[in-house]
Design a protein around this nucleic acid. Sequence first.
DNA 1: TGCCTGATGTCAGCAGCTGACATCAAGGGG
DNA 2: CCCCTTGATGTCAGCTGCTGACATCAGGCA
Lengths: 193, 193
Amino acid sequence: MTLFQENGYDRTTVEEIAARAGLTERTFFRYFADKKEVLFGGSEALHERIVTCIADTPPGTAPLDAVAAALESMTPFFKDRRDHARARQSLLAVHAELRERELIKLASLASASAAALRKRGVTEPAASLAGEAGIAVFKVAFERWLEDPKAQDLSRHIQLGLDELRAVTARTGPGAPAEPPRKPAKTASARKP
Amino acid sequence: MTLFQENGYDRTTVEEIAARAGLTERTFFRYFADKKEVLFGGSEALHERIVTCIADTPPGTAPLDAVAAALESMTPFFKDRRDHARARQSLLAVHAELRERELIKLASLASASAAALRKRGVTEPAASLAGEAGIAVFKVAFERWLEDPKAQDLSRHIQLGLDELRAVTARTGPGAPAEPPRKPAKTASARKP
DNA sequence: TGCCTGATGTCAGCAGCTGACATCAAGGGG
DNA sequence: CCCCTTGATGTCAGCTGCTGACATCAGGCA
């Protein structure tokens, strides 16, 4: 991170990173598949945590709630890393390749969640959708958490995001109209032939 | 695609691709930012289409419905490309780098959708969530479309996905939600074409 | 002591990608 | 009809990411 912040991501060579760690470029590539991968350490831990967390959710919990609970459980993990997360995020903002990597990690979390749900008896289209929806909430919540001037908890943002998602997906969607108390026709009217 | 299928993605060199097109490697990189990017031509078209489609949705439409309608409108675009899409998908299945690229394209669609919704007066957390949720539905629907032995329309799968998402995000209601009745409401919630 | 194993270093080499410059063809104005 | 501009392409050199093959070295263990 230090090197990246000083010289920029792509003007930092892998050889330099390795040297800073007292190692060789070759050794670097034995620990990290990629130059990008240095920025994603510990993602396996999150992965594992989410899966076990979903598995441990009391039976009868709604799928989306199970995923949300798992995501909330990572709050302490990020608690003291807000500054680091912000630095990381500003790297991602500049370099699309890094965003790509972030996205595939999140997608992997989504499909792991789906698998965990399936193991609980959730049937297929629902499991994947719950996983994806949960991750969508997390993405939005995480960004808002980083920017939040009030510095509210990450879990708080996740809950807010969940509520908002529920509102948005509710059959007759609120939050839409600039015109206040307009009750739009049922969703069927929005369909195009 | 031919080259990729014959020799595999990473055993196909950019020079070979360019040669097959009667050009030079250098010229290739003037048209494509990346080796990966050859597989993602036309994504700007989709992007644009979605945005205008959301903008043209009748006012008062629920945000998620607007996004879904926009996504459904791409059905004819894929209609005759199912085989090609499948070939592409099997490349993606093998090569994570390509999946990364796909994901960032989809994410870009999601944020474009969110922007389009915002322009319609949808407030912020809702807009992003609707965009992400819509794309989530699309991802799942697209995969199911590719595998569907009955070869139903892509738009059909999108509708089913939307319904399923709505069911999954519905507030945890009375009936035990973890496992709904075996042959679920699919038919009951079917839409009028 | 001597062997095995795992971590690291060394080296050579390919492929992706870029900048700088040359070339060439088409078209428009003089 | 010629010349000049412009845009597309080719050529060349070079860096960096990344990999395979092999050497080295240290620690543990028989």
